[in-house]
Design a protein around this nucleic acid. Structure first.
Lengths: 206, 206
DNA sequence: GTCTATAGCAAGATAGAC
DNA sequence: GTCTATCTTGCTATAGAC
C-alpha cells in the first residue's frame, strides 16, 4: 500500500532489492509507531523488537544502528507528506485557482500527519530531538518539501488572494506551524480537525 | 528579577523559605536552559550538575528526583507566560479594544517563549515527552492559561472583529500553534519574528 | 551543603551458535 | 535471519564521609 513511495528515489534499484524483506518493513512500521507515540530517545530497540517479535540484537541484521533506523523512518516521513500533497494538488487539474490548491495542500498535510502516516508524525514529533547528524541528512528532503509551500503562497500572492498585511513567509510559517502543532492536541476520537484547515484558509486567503 | 513569580501561588509562605537558596535557583536555571536546548530525556543530572558546578548526587539535596526538578521547571514555565500575557493585556487599560488586547497577548507570548524565559520554552519543548504523571500535575496550570486565550477570542468574536468563517476554537488553536511552533525555526540572530504576530493578527482579526 | 563511591538498572551494540 | 549471551557505557538514585 505504501512501499512504492517508501523507497522512491533511493537510486540503484538493482543492488537494493536484497533486504527489502518483510522483517525490515515490519521494523520500520513499528519504529515509526513508537517514535510517534513516545519519541526517539524514549523508544528502545528492545521495545521495537518486542512488538516486531524479535530480539533487539536481531534488528542489527537489518540496520547498522538505531540512528540509521531513525534516519530511514524520518526520511520516509517527509516523502510521504511531500507525495500526498503533490498528489492532492495535481488532482485538481491545471486550471484550479491558488486558493483551491492551498486548501488541498493543507488538508493533505493534515490527513497524512494525523491519520495516514506514523512515519510523518514520527518525523514531526522527533526531528528536534534526534542526533544532529541525522537532522543534517534530512535537510535536503525537508527543503524540497518546504519549496512546495513557498510556491503555493507565491501563487496566492500573485493572484492577489493573500490577506493584505500578511507577508508570504509569515503565512507559510503560520500555516505549517498551526498544522504541525495539531499533533499536540489531536484526538482521533474526534476525527480530523478540518475546522482548523478551513479556519486557516479563511484567515489567510480571501 | 523573576523570583517574585517563580514561587507565586505555592502557598504556605512560612514553611517554604528554607530552601529557596542560590544553589536551588541555579539548578533550576541550568535545568531550564538544558531542557530547552536538548529535551528532558536527553539532559542528564550530570550535565546539569556540571554547569552548576556541583556533582549530580548533590542535586538530590535540593530535589527529590529528576522528575520533581522537571515539574518545577515546567510549572514555572507556564506561570511565566501566563503572567507576562496578563501583564501585557492589563497594561493597555480597560478601554482597549479586542484587537489590541489580542495583539499584546500574542507579542507577550512570543517574547516570553523565544527570548525571555528558558522555563517557558522548556515547557513547550518538553511537555509531550515528560513522564505522564508530571503532565497530569501541570494540567490545571495549563488550563488556566488556555482560559485567557479563550476569553480573548470570545471578546474578539463578540466585537465582531474575528475574520468570518473562522470559529473561535480553530482560531485559538491556530494562533497558539503557530506561535509555539516558532520555537522550531526561531533564529536569535534574526531577532523576534514579529512579522509572525502581525501576520496572524491581520489574518484572524479585521 | 557538597563530596566520593557505588548500587542497580537499562541502553546500544557486538560475537558466535544455530 | 534470529537467538543467546555479553560488553560497555551512561543513567537515576542512595549512603555515608566531610
Amino acid at each position: 500500500m505504501v512501499e512504492a513511495i517508501t523507497h522512491a528515489g533511493d537510486g540503484d534499484a538493482t543492488k537494493r532489492a536484497k533486504r527489502s524483506d518483510a522483517s525490515r518493513q515490519q521494523i520500520l512500521d513499528v519504529a515509526a509507531k513508537l517514535f510517534r507515540a513516545r519519541g526517539y530517545t524514549e523508544t528502545s530497540l528492545r521495545d521495537i523488537g518486542k512488538q516486531v517479535g524479535m530480539k533487539a540484537g536481531s534488528i542489527y541484521y537489518h540496520f547498522t544502528s538505531k540512528e540509521e533506523l531513525a534516519t530511514e523512518v524520518l526520511r520516509i516521513g517527509v516523502r510521504r507528506v511531500h507525495h500526498a500533497v503533490v498528489l492532492a494538488v495535481e488532482a485538481l487539474g491545471p486550471t484550479a485557482d491558488a486558493k483551491s490548491r492551498l486548501r488541498a495542500a493543507m488538508v493533505a498535510h493534515l490527513e497524512t500527519l494525523l491519520d495516514e502516516s506514523d512515519y510523518t508524525s514520527a518525523h514531526i514529533h522527533c526531528f528536534p530531538y534526534v542526533p544532529e547528524g541525522l537532522r543534517g541528512q534530512l535537510s535536503s528532503e525537508r527543503k524540497e518539501y518546504e519549496e512546495i509551500w513557498r510556491k503555493l503562497l507565491d501563487d496566492a500572492a500573485a493572484d492577489g488572494v493573500l490577506t493584505p498585511g500578511v507577508d508570504r513567509a509569515a503565512a507559510r510559517l503560520a500555516i505549517l506551524g498551526a498544522l504541525n502543532w495539531s499533533l499536540e492536541w489531536y484526538d482521533p476520537k474526534q476525527g480530523l480537525p478540518l475546522h482548523l484547515t478551513s479556519g486557516l484558509l479563511a484567515a489567510f486567503v480571501r
